[in-house]
């Protein structure tokens, strides 16, 4: 028979040591899905570089609209901005939804959730660790795509200053700093879709429902955002200010929208996270 602590736990069991972040990350990184996402994150910038190199010629000049594609090839940092711009409204949303939405629901689907809970990993701790692991992976994915874009873009298009569409240049050091700010903003703003997926993940046992549900919700709001008649109601959408990070290209930077975006994202994230914890704490785990 085992030695027992006063709490009734077996000697060697400490709630705060259960499901450590390193263990959860190890569990996640043993999954092909995780490796796949990261491989995609590396591949995407390379793919875009190839595409830009191939079609560099005719169309770019005749387009008089201001856009980031026109200046995408002027430097590695420019290319990175273009990659971020291209991925903000879909690709990164899916990545966040995947990492956050899959985390609890997939355990429920495998049936391993009940063994983790009977270990016992306290429910709130399980959720917290899952949340943190999802955040670490999502941010790591975001950083991967950014770093690959900076490095590969730099090699392909030169380590030069940022050239904004309106002909202003931003020095490399300053540019990197701003890029860090943009990635930081995106990391926070995407928490909205992430935490929504996380909440759904605690509600359903089907990972697809959690991931798909949150992505679908974001798309619905993105479409509604096009409806001018809704007026300022749209400012409260979870998708609001998703491109506010482009404000960091201004000189001087006007951080008003960024600030609003951060606050609103954090509020949404807090609400969804609270809903997730509330639901999970009361839930009967029957899967």
């Amino acid at each position: 028979m085992s030695t027992v602590q006063s709490t009734g736990a077996v000697a060697g069991y400490r709630p705060e040591r259960t499901l450590r972040l390193s263990v959860e990350l190890r569990r996640q990184f043993k999954r092909r899905r995780t490796i796949g996402v990261f491989a995609l994150m590396v591949a995407l910038p390379l793919l875009l570089i190839a595409a830009l190199q191939l079609g560099a010629s005719e169309d770019a000049q005749s387009n008089s609209r201001l856009n980031l594609v026109d200046v995408a090839t002027s430097s590695g940092l420019n290319f990175t901005l273009f990659v971020l711009f291209a991925t903000t409204s879909f690709f990164l949303v899916v990545v966040y939804a995947l990492f956050f939405g899959d985390t609890v629901a997939s355990e429920a689907q495998w049936g391993s959730l009940r063994y983790a809970l009977a270990t016992p990993v306290p429910r709130m701790r399980l959720l917290r660790q899952k949340w943190l692991a999802a955040l670490v992976m999502s941010v790591a994915a975001l950083l991967t795509v950014t770093v690959v874009a900076v490095v590969a873009g730099g090699i392909a298009f030169g380590f030069e200053d940022i050239q904004t569409p309106i002909g202003i240049t931003i020095g490399q050091g300053d540019g990197l700093l701003r890029l860090a700010g943009m990635v930081g903003y995106l990391a926070v703003h995407l928490l909205v879709v992430g935490t929504l997926a996380f909440w759904l993940s605690t509600v359903t046992d089907a990972p697809l429902a959690a991931v798909g549900g949150s992505v679908f919700t974001m798309f619905v709001f993105a479409i509604l955002d096009q409806v001018e008649q809704l007026g300022s109601v749209r400012d409260y959408f979870p998708t609001a200010e998703e491109f506010a990070w482009t404000d960091l290209l201004q000189t001087p930077v006007d951080s008003g929208d960024l600030y609003r975006g951060v606050i609103q994202s954090l509020l949404y994230a807090a609400v969804f996270t609270a809903l997730a914890f509330r639901h999970f704490a009361r839930r009967d785990v029957t899967s």
Partner: peptide, 14 residues
């Protein structure tokens, strides 16, 4: 091509 055009802040947003 999709440009760097994002909706400007609507009134009351601030």
């Amino acid at each position: 091509t999709r440009g760097l055009v994002r909706p400007s802040p609507r009134p009351g947003a601030r």
